[in-house]
């Protein structure tokens, strides 16, 4: 796959998703996410935020319609290229999905290691990143010995270490205190400023509206793109 800059990071066209037992989650969903953008993905619990992200990182296949990533139709990608496409995507899972028998350091180094980076170099980079998110005392710990918020930071470190073109994060600030949440949001903003497309799923619509970024709102199997309305929010805060 060539690395020419793509206009759209993600393009959903008339996408439907019906689960095995016949339950329909999305029907005729259209969505365009521009490269380099910063988006919040909102909706009530069960609206399908996690599932939409899953379709984006090719973790589940749509029932109909087309999904393009970086202007490439995902239906036409070979098995091998799926792996290379996923290397452009950093994923923070809602349930972290850290590998239980690997140390924090090895978990974070993993995306680099599967790319063929030498273990020594991968671990050095992972250590630096973990130091930055405040986990330098836990490099050799196993994930289950960490608190929920600490595990979340490990998960975020693993998602960003490969400098992805697209970062999808599912409730990345759900388990941390406000101060840490702000610090993590700052990390995501930093990555956005460096050109990464960022999608943060959250059920906290206030957070989304405060930060003046566009919001993808999921409701009844459809996606609505809401542009930020700075003045309204300002008024709201002032009132």
């Amino acid at each position: 796959m060539q690395d020419i800059p793509s206009k759209n990071a993600i393009h959903f066209q008339n996408v439907s998703l019906v689960f095995e037992h016949g339950v329909r989650l999305f029907s005729g969903l259209n969505l365009t996410i521009e490269s380099g953008g910063f988006y919040f993905l909102t909706g009530v619990s069960g609206a399908g935020k996690s599932t939409l992200l899953k379709m984006i990182y090719l973790g589940c296949k749509q029932s109909s319609g087309t999904i393009s990533l970086f202007d490439t139709n995902t239906a036409r990608i070979s098995f091998r290229d799926i792996a290379f496409l996923r290397r452009k995507i950093g994923i923070v899972f809602q349930d972290f999905r850290l590998i239980p028998h690997l140390t924090v350091l090895d978990n974070v180094a993993l995306p680099l290691q599967v790319r063929g980076v030498s273990p020594r170099k991968a671990q050095a980079e992972a250590a630096e990143l973990l130091n930055w998110v405040g986990l330098k005392d836990h490099l050799k710990s196993l994930p289950h010995t960490l608190s929920g918020g600490e595990q979340q930071r490990v998960a975020i470190s693993r998602a960003v270490i490969g400098r992805p073109k697209l970062l999808v994060a599912d409730e990345p600030t759900g388990n941390v205190d406000d101060e840490t949440a702000l610090k993590l949001l700052y990390l995501f903003e930093e990555m956005h400023k460096q050109g990464t497309t960022v999608i943060l799923a959250t059920h906290n619509r206030n957070l989304a509206q405060e930060l003046k970024y566009p919001e993808i709102f999921l409701e009844k199997g459809q996606a609505f793109l809401l542009e930020p309305e700075p003045t309204l929010i300002k008024e709201g805060i002032l009132v």
Binding site: Y57, G59, F79, R80, A83, F84, R86, R87, I91, R97, I99, L110, P111, V114, R115, R158, G162
Partner: peptide, 16 residues
């Protein structure tokens, strides 16, 4: 299978 799925999602090829 869970770990293998994570490996795939962080970009591991089948060969890896």
């Amino acid at each position: 299978r869970n770990i293998i799925e994570v490996l795939h999602l962080v970009g591991a090829t089948d060969a890896y």
